[in-house]
Amino acid sequence: MNVFRLAGDVSHLVAIIILLLKIWRSRSCAGISGKSQLLFALVFTTRYLDLFTVYISAYNTIMKVVFLALSYATVYLIYMRFRNTYDSENDSFRVEFLLVPVIGLSFLEHYAFTPMEVLWTFSIFLEAVAIMPQLFMITKTGEAESITTHYLFFLGLYRALYIANWVWRYHTEGFFDQIAVVSGVVQTIFYCDFFYLYVTKVVQGRSKMSLP
């Protein structure tokens, strides 16, 4: 464990909590892409299957349980509790355009052709594109609430910090996870456009951010 990875995990946790609290306190999921949240729940489900078979550390186990619980709670709030506030018309991204390539690629590129490894690879590739429906929804509605942009900021920051973690681990322990690194870089690049808007607009104190 290093400071970059810890900061990344904290940033990830903060993002998930920001979104969950926003939905719970406003009792609405307007402007939130349920599809992205479903994809994130799928990412955690397929990545954390080793929860009961491999013990890394108490931290690892606890964080996996927390991420799974919070992501399923978010999906529950969107599709069950506050489903009448779910904006399905604007949440129209065709997720099959993400799932098919990701499934295909995880069968082509993996460390071992075993169910656990292919599913882990699937979760890595899926995470890189899971935010697409949310970014698409924001471009469609033309704006994002300030809280949603903070959610996206911490979500993008988490994987950027993981890249720093991979650089650190490469130089200190020769660790190099090619699949995670390539996918993590692609994922972070997707946020660059948003990061620019976030820094230039939201930091200026405007309540809403309108994407071009």
Binding site: R5, D9, H12, R47, D50, V54, I56, N60, M63, K64, F67, Y111, W120, Y162, N165, G174, F175, F176, D177, Q178, A180
Partner: peptide, 10 residues
């Protein structure tokens, strides 16, 4: 690339 023996990251 050094392939990780097990995935120790979240």
């Amino acid at each position: 690339s050094v392939e990780p023996l097990r995935h120790d990251e979240l």
